[in-house]
Design a protein around this nucleic acid. Structure first.
Length: 315
DNA sequence: CAAGCGTGGGT
DNA sequence: TACCCAAGCTT
């Protein structure tokens, strides 16, 4: 690995007025201490891990569990160690290497991000939050995460884990709102310590991932259970509308997944009849849905149509 | 801005 | 067994 980055590049200047121990919210010390003792040994957290490799991990981890990301991430950083390497790869290779991680449009966006990094940033992952945010597939969370974890900067990193930890410990509710609210962003910003904010960010995330979990939180192991507003309120259950689960059976999403799985595993272009065999019964009975999904995949750049009603992954 | 977008393990 | 949900982004 080429250590082009790391916390050493922290752009923030060191403490000015307040000392680290003074005037900070009471969650900081116990959560960071807990993190130092309990953090997982993840490869993208190793010192000197290149910003590009960290960026890859963040994209892969969007809505995807760590255990599923690990082997694919290792394959990618070895195969495409720099943005320039990925920028030159073919979509078909990238989509196949993405495997069954899910949401394959992420792979395409990462490809596009690599090309933008080559063309606009001289092949180096930008450290500026706004420049990160402008890259394809990078939104508010990922921009803050890369700026924090790859460059040691100070940003409010608000992912689903952090939102849940703050909802419970500070706001006193079991689950955060469906969508990120201005109040949550404000709170996360206010809680940001002056020093080592990137450590605070990853520590809160880790606490949410390992202890303050969505279901069956391990409060007995929590370093801040004694000051958790939700616990102190008697752990009241979530009120309000039930969070709607994602439909799956019979949806376009299922059909798209089946079509992509068929095309990934085939070395040759597939005819339309061959594709039909691969999709679930629900779509067999609905040619409209099939064609809609295929068109959508082509529109997304995930499938390339060939003459004679054949299809393949984009060359 | 709510809906759409994959996949598979946990409970 | 059926949900639930996992380091979100885009339109």
């Amino acid at each position: 690995m080429t250590p082009t980055t790391a916390s050493a590049k922290a752009t923030r200047t060191k403490g000015t007025t307040t000392s680290a121990s003074k005037n900070q919210n009471p969650l900081h010390t116990p959560i960071i201490a807990w993190y130092e003792a309990n953090q997982r040994d993840l490869p993208w957290r190793e010192p000197g891990c290149p910003a590009w490799h960290i960026l890859i991990s963040e994209i892969m981890l969007q809505q995807t569990p760590v255990v599923r990301v690990l082997p694919i991430w290792r394959e990618w950083v070895e195969r495409w160690p720099t943005p320039a390497d990925l920028a030159q790869a073919s979509p078909a290779d990238i989509i196949r290497a993405w495997g069954r991680l899910g949401y394959p449009r992420r792979a395409l966006r990462l490809h596009a991000a690599a090309q933008a990094i080559v063309e606009k940033h001289n092949g180096e992952v930008p450290s500026d939050h706004a420049e990160l945010l402008a890259l394809p597939g990078i939104g508010s969370y990922t921009a803050a995460a890369v700026a924090s974890f790859a460059f040691g900067q100070r940003h409010a990193v608000l992912d689903t884990n952090v939102r849940r930890v703050f909802a419970r410990t500070v706001t006193g509710i079991e689950y955060p709102p469906t969508a990120v609210t201005a109040a949550e962003t404000k709170l996360a910003t206010e809680l940001l310590p002056e020093q080592r904010a990137h450590v605070w960010a990853v520590a809160v995330m880790e606490l949410g991932a390992l202890v303050c979990t969505a279901r069956s939180p391990k409060c007995a192991e929590c370093p801040v259970s004694q000051q958790c507003a939700w616990r102190l309120a008697g752990s009241p259950p979530h009120t309000g509308p039930a969070r709607k689960g994602q439909a799956w059976a019979g949806t376009d999403r299922q059909i798209r997944g089946a079509l992509m799985a068929a095309l990934r595993s085939s070395k040759e272009p597939l005819s339309h009849p061959q594709l039909v065999i691969e999709v679930p019964d629900s779509a067999l009975r609905d040619p409209n849905q099939r064609s809609r999904c295929l068109s959508g995949l082509i529109e997304d750049g995930l499938v390339e149509p060939l003459p004679g009603d054949h299809y393949q992954l984009p060359a």
